[in-house]
Design a protein around this nucleic acid. Structure first.
Length: 953
RNA sequence: GCGGGCGUGAUGGAAUUGGUAGACAUGCCAGACUUAGGAUCUGGUGCCGCAAGGUGUGGGAGUUCGAGUCUCCCCGCCCGUACCA
């Protein structure tokens, strides 16, 4: 066996790793822990393409590297196995989603095993497994049993709230709750009926049921969260979305807005992603101001970030949905207003977005009163004001806000300039400019905006017509989905009031249904379940245990959204499986396990989860922390977004109305359309295999091909997202078969920086494959005593200094690069190392042993094989990382600034051993330095650490 | 519009963070060996030039002894977000 036979080697070691459970992490190790996590995949039917494993390869390199560094590494994997595609497939075929999911998982597992990841599969999780979603339901119950105390700034037990209600009512409570909650005393609380009390409590719970305006997607038959909508259509499938009022479960994530924002400062995430989350949270500081309405009891509350412009208010605008509209509209305007509201209500969100330029609005006939000048301010309705943000009403300051300005111009409303020396004849002056002075503004005239804003807030508080306020864009997250393939809510209804199912009866299992569609009455698919088992042997419902009167209570028919299971799965991995003596059947994760593993040290995944998974996980973790259920407040300490691997689609140009294809360079003035062709039909020189293409589709069977002079047909290439429908998918299995998993792993890393999006181009793969072949050859030499036949041969003699130098340079470079995720340059360093060692014909154990360890995170299979050939019986993953020794790297130098005639002129590479004070040494200077010194060559330099180096001529 | 990022050979990309631009790899060219292959090895390869040399990191200016790197303006590209008061 002298050839690099990757197929044999890879199979051998993958089996070895699995049999000996090499990568099983311990929970009670004295070693330092390192938790290295990938975002777990949704197991889709299409299997993995070369883009999927990119992040897994990167984390696997880090995991293996950390093991060499003697860390106890937790590197788990699992499946986010609830989700839409399996359900859509079920609707079409009748196949149970659990069956499809199981098959897909098996395929994913097989593909992942082939790449040689060092996952600890004993800790695998699947969100659709009842033993897993039992705990998702359990956490939901904990959320249901909690409220958010703004005074303590944390979530607390709802029992505490009930205690306060019975002793003091809700007047002293500062809680995150529905705005319209009315105040009551302790006596009033006690007088409420059970149902009334439950309804009030629901307004305080961290997960609550409320009539919400939701994004309804008729095509998918479900509601979508804001982050599941892209450009007004559903992220999945691109179906239109409309607004609809529905009774829905919501998560009070808004209670955590400030902490979610502050927490970002403590974690090591890409700045762009943090910025995305900051935007999504959307904090704005300003004031809430009350405007009295003339001849009316009602008041309008507005939120503004510019209280300093209050004297510039010339009208007010309410959202069409604003609740006061119907109360304040004058009889003369009533009809016009109603028509307008009807019109805007009909327009979908999408139309409204597409139509920003069009200014619409209507006068209500009512007037508000300016809090300071007492002037009358006309109240308008306009759909540029959003009901969902702030208070759904704005004080319009045309001189300071462009939208107000446009609205005022359109309806010929007055525009008052309150800025000194600012021209507002063309547009509003909306920047918070430090140099702008406020004018014509009563007691704030002559002040800068920030001082003015402060003064206005003070004055408003004095007269009781406003206060400083911070507003967040982040809204509560809708948590109900009208779907089958998700976690059932552990909720039943008694007198229309939701109650949780007792913990000991979890999981509440998904019932069988004969069809995965909504019922005829419009209920979600779970409405079809005739028997709903939620525990072995006990049938449909809760009546036996919970109700005194044998009534059967209905269960919640919605299921939880995709992000429910993924918001806490990283804790589940910490707990050992039951078969390994873990407590997974007793707890979601045990205290001991969580106190040892704490949080994820490195999390690798795509940035598309920026406002979904990554925000909701932080929210749930903060909640669990508040309730002392987990020991950490942030789940992911360091996060890396791996860039997407794109596909290089190939197109053949087909002439319009003809079944004739024209090679790329021959298309001149003819009308030709690019037609996707499968990339596997195209060679690296963009030449199409015409025969294969013809047999691909019947319609191409008789197609004509106009080729270049050399008979080749050249295709046009374009970089696109890798997708089955674009025929540009490259399958990792094929690469593994042809070049091996080690080549695939290294090539994916060599392709470019991890964070960057990059097209897959198989052409360059021979580079890393050659590297592995050369590496193999370093350990295999021709033996002259056996007729020149090659065999494994290692010298036990001491290595020469040159070999040691290149080895230690490589150790340094590779180590630094792995630490900074520069895997592509680390591989370059390994290539240089192997090339130089080959040139030196170096085969000393002293060199080749540490080299194998250096390579092993990148190409673990070949490293294991070489390690074995070196005479070791343990896995290379148990071996310590080589130690870098500076003394071998002679030319390791440091830049020192050089002065000449007392003036700093340039810096120069000097050996490190010169860095001791006072050492004099003659230094050779290069041509460029000579030139800079105007021909004077320095003879000696004196090094003074931290100071400028003087040249002694 | 706003926010974040980027622009380097034919190509993917390096550059010790202000110090010999183009590492490494692909591609290409030349050669060696060869029962010819998509094998292996050697050399070359930013551009212009036979050469000496000149020139060169999207364009323009600036700071600096010195700029791919820092500052300003312009051009182009990508990502995120959007009537947020």
């Amino acid at each position: 066996m002298t050839q690099y036979d990757f197929n044999r080697i890879e199979k051998k070691w993958q089996e070895y790793w699995a049999e000996n459970e090499i990568f099983k992490a311990e929970n009670n190790s004295k070693k330092e822990k390192f938790y290295c996590l990938d975002m777990f995949p949704y197991p889709s039917g299409a299997g993995l393409h070369v883009g999927h494993p990119l992040g897994y390869i990167a984390s696997d390199i880090v995991a293996r590297y950390k093991r060499h560094q003697a860390f106890n590494v937790l590197h788990p994997m699992g499946y986010d196995s609830f989700g839409l595609p399996a359900e859509q497939y079920a609707i079409q075929t009748g196949q149970h989603p659990a069956v499809t999911t199981k098959e897909n998982i098996a395929r994913y597992r097989q593909q992942m095993d082939q790449i040689g990841f060092s996952f600890d599969w004993s800790r695998e999780v699947r969100t659709s497994d009842p033993n897993y979603y039992k705990w998702t339901q359990w956490i939901f119950i904990k959320l249901f049993e909690s409220w958010y105390d703004n005074s303590q700034n944390k979530a607390c037990d709802i029992q505490e709230l009930i205690a306060i209600f019975s002793s003091k009512g809700n007047i002293t409570i500062n809680a995150a709750c529905d705005q319209k909650t009315e105040t009551f005393t302790a006596d009033e609380w006690k007088a409420f009926s059970e149902k009334e009390q439950q309804e009030i409590l629901l307004k305080y719970r961290l997960t609550y049921l409320a009539e919400t305006e939701v994004n309804w997607c008729p095509a998918l038959g479900t509601v979508l969260a804001n982050d599941e909508i892209v450009n007004g259509v559903s992220e999945r499938g691109g179906h239109p979305v409309e607004r609809k009022k529905m009774m829905q479960w919501s998560m009070r994530v808004s209670a955590y807005a400030e902490r979610l924002l502050q927490g970002l400062n403590k974690i090591d995430w890409p700045e762009s992603l943090k910025e995305t989350q900051r935007n999504w949270i959307g904090k704005s500081v300003g004031a809430e101001i009350q405007f009295r309405i003339q001849n009316s009891e009602f008041k309008i509350f507005v939120f503004t970030t510019r209280p300093d412009t209050i004297f510039g208010v010339t009208f007010m605008t309410l959202a069409p949905e604003h609740e006061l509209v119907s109360e304040i509209v004058t009889p003369e305007q009533k009809e016009e207003v109603e028509v307008y509201i009807k019109q805007t209500g009909k327009r979908s969100e999408r139309e409204r977005m597409a139509d920003i330029k069009n200014i619409t609005g209507v006068f209500t006939g009512a007037y508000a009163e300016h809090p300071f000048t007492k002037e009358a301010i006309p109240i308008w309705i306009g759909d540029y004001v959003l009901a969902g943000y702030g208070t759904g009403a704005v004080m319009a300051v045309p001189c300071g806000d462009q939208r107000d300005y446009d609205f005022a111009e359109h309806f010929e409303l007055p525009i008052n300039n309150i800025f000194e020396n600012v021209d507002i004849s063309k547009e509003a002056h909306s920047d918070k400019d430090k140099n702008t002075v406020i004018a014509h503004s009563g007691f704030i005239s002559g002040l800068m905006w920030d001082k003015a804003a402060k003064t206005v807030i003070e004055k408003l508080e004095e007269i009781g017509q406003g206060k400083g306020k911070t507003n967040y864009r982040l809204r509560d997250a809708v948590f109900s989905r009208q779907r089958y393939w998700g976690e059932p809510f552990p909720i039943y209804y008694k007198n229309g009031v939701p109650h949780t199912i007792p913990e000991e009866n979890l999981p509440l299992r998904l019932p069988e249904v004969e069809k995965y569609l909504p019922t005829e009455t419009g209920e979600p698919p779970l409405g079809r379940a005739t028997k709903w088992h939620w525990d072995e042997g006990k049938c449909s419902v809760v009546s036996d245990q919970l109700a005194d009167d044998k009534t059967v209570f209905p269960l919640e028919l919605n299921t939880m959204p995709g992000w429910a299971g993924s918001s806490w799965y990283f804790f589940r991995y910490m707990e050992l499986a039951i078969s390994d003596g873990g407590k997974r059947d007793e707890v979601f994760a045990s205290k001991d396990a969580m106190n040892y593993w704490k949080n994820v040290d490195l999390y690798i995944g795509g940035s598309e989860h920026g406002t979904g998974h990554l925000l909701y996980s932080r929210f749930w973790v903060k909640f669990l922390y508040d309730r002392s259920l987990v020991p950490v407040e942030e789940p992911f300490q360091k996060l890396i977004n791996q860039g997407m691997i794109l596909g290089e689609s190939a197109f053949g140009y087909r002439l319009e109305n003809e079944n004739k294809f024209v090679s790329k360079n021959l298309v001149k003035n003819q009308k030709a359309h690019p037609i996707h062709t499968d990339v596997s039909f195209v060679n690296i020189h963009n030449g199409l295999n015409i025969e294969v293409f013809k047999n691909w589709r019947p319609e191409y069977k008789d197609a004509e091909f106009i080729t270049e002079e050399d008979g080749k047909f050249i295709v046009h290439r374009e970089v696109e997202k890798m997708s089955k429908s674009k025929y540009n998918v490259v399958n990792p299995d094929d690469i593994c078969e042809e070049y091996g998993a080690d080549t695939l792993r290294m090539y994916e890393m060599f392709l470019g920086p991890l964070e960057q999006a990059k097209p897959w181009n198989t052409a360059g793969i021979t580079g890393v494959h050659n590297f592995l072949k050369k590496l193999w050859k370093l350990y295999v030499w021709p033996n002259s005593s056996k007729g020149g036949k090659s065999e494994f041969y290692i010298s036990e003699e001491k290595a020469n200094p040159e070999s040691l130098k290149i080895l230690h340079k490589t150790i340094k470079k590779v180590t630094d690069d792995i630490e900074s995720f520069g895997f592509n340059t680390a591989i370059s360093a390994l290539m240089i190392c192997v090339n130089e060692l080959s040139a030196q014909k170096c085969n000393n154990r002293e060199i080749l042993e540490p080299l194998a360890v250096l390579v092993s995170p990148f190409a673990p299979h070949i490293a294991e094989e070489l390690w074995e050939k070196l005479g070791h019986s343990e896995s290379i993953s148990e071996v310590n990382y080589p130690i870098f020794e500076e003394r071998y790297v002679v030319e390791n130098t440091k830049k020192y600034p050089i002065s000449f005639n007392g003036k700093m002129r340039f810096t120069m590479d000097l050996p490190l051993d010169l860095s001791k004070e006072g050492i004099e040494k003659t230094v050779m200077t290069d041509e460029r330095t000579k030139r800079q010194l105007e021909g004077k060559t320095p003879k000696k330099i004196i090094v003074v650490p931290g100071k400028i180096v003087n040249i002694v001529s």
